[in-house]
Amino acid sequence: MASLIALLEAGTTPWRREWDAAAGGHHVNLLSGRRYRGANPVLLTLGLHLRGSALPYWCGFAEAKALGIFPRKGSKAVYVLRPQLHEQGEGQLLEAASGEGSGPADAGEATAGGGVATAGRSWVSYRPVALFNAGDLEGEALEELIQKRYQVEGAVLHPEPERLAAAEAVLSSWPVEVCFGGDRACYLPGPDRIQLPERAAFHSAGALYSTWAHEAIHSTGHSSRLARDLSGGIGEAGDGGRAYAREELVAELGAVLLGDRLEIGSAMANHAAYLGHWVELLKESPRVLLQVLGDARRAADLICPEQAEA
């Protein structure tokens, strides 16, 4: 958390990431190729930024050690959240852990050891899992594994025109009116409308869709949907300003998740005015990041649910 706050204080939004098709795009397990899901792509993108890596390949210490691969001295792990479903049986507690960094539950709703109530006699808790980036590993088998992952991930990537067309289809199908014109992008809760500049005003199609995704995430907070607190405004005194800064953070991280799912990255315009407010929020309560990640994931799921892996 201290590293994240330092980056924000320096004017950096470290969860943003251009879509890098050359490196495979999605965050995946180095050995199995399994994608990290839920809100974990945000945590792993932050991890990439902190270590200056461009390789979205990760693995745990034990699985790497089994192949004679080890973290370099001084390397630090990145922690993702693995949801675990608990079911209360007759006189016993049954636990079923979902796949690595994935599952139907909402990352960010509970810290390790905590629980989230669900329907019936079941609940979800989250266990932190340490992962090391491929760039922090060394060993004879490493280069071959990275090359294999390059080949496998590259074979399933969609060409850019196809990805952009898919992003247009998903965002256009979201049932909130979008009006193009003017010089700013915003979501208006009253009329329940998204306002965007003309398409030609964006420096790339990716920037258009990233900004559109950001405003679409805002619109999920409408009282008829997820009913988040959309009150206040940046620069306003009191709780209203903080509430809106929190909502901007939800939209930021939700847009990152959508950018990962739609394979367009997160290249929206900088919201530098909010950085100081985000620092205040995180310093006030580190837990707020987990809560915001949960809100961001629920919002992204409304617009573009994750596809089940084959």
Rank of each mutant, 00 (worst) to 15 (best):
S125T: 13
L50V: 07
T111R: 14
A166K: 12
A39T: 00
T211Q: 15
P161W: 07
E263M: 15
R261D: 09
P159F: 01
G235P: 04
E138Q: 12
R149P: 04
L43R: 10
V256I: 09
L81H: 15
A107W: 14
F61D: 05
A39K: 03
L30C: 02
A105S: 12
A299I: 01
E18Y: 09
G190K: 13
R34I: 07
G113E: 05
Q92C: 10
G139S: 10
E9D: 11
G221K: 01
A205P: 10
E247P: 09
D106M: 09
G206L: 10
H26I: 14
L85H: 09
C179S: 15
I194G: 02
S172G: 05
W278H: 02
E215V: 01
I217N: 01
R37S: 13
G238A: 07
Q151G: 08
Y126P: 00
E198T: 11
H203Q: 15
F180I: 05
S102G: 15
H27D: 11
L137V: 04
A227P: 11
A213E: 11
N133D: 11
G181P: 01
E309H: 09
R242Q: 08
G240Q: 06
A10V: 06
T220P: 06
I194R: 03
H271T: 06
A39I: 03
C304W: 12
G74C: 10
A10N: 15
G89E: 13
L226V: 09
A39E: 13
W19T: 03
D192H: 11
E252K: 01
A105W: 12
L46A: 05
D20N: 10
Y57I: 01
R17F: 07
Y209S: 04
V152Q: 15
C179T: 14
T211G: 04
E138R: 10
Y274K: 02
F132K: 03
I5F: 03
A255E: 05
D301W: 08
L30N: 00
V156F: 12
R17H: 13
L281G: 01
W123F: 07
C59Q: 04
H203E: 14
E63R: 13
L257Q: 02
G11D: 02
A300V: 04
E109K: 13
S204M: 04
E95S: 13
E18Q: 15
Q84E: 12
L131C: 00
E215T: 02
D229A: 01
V78Y: 06
F70Q: 14
G182W: 07
L282P: 00
E153T: 11
E177D: 10
E162T: 10
A119C: 13
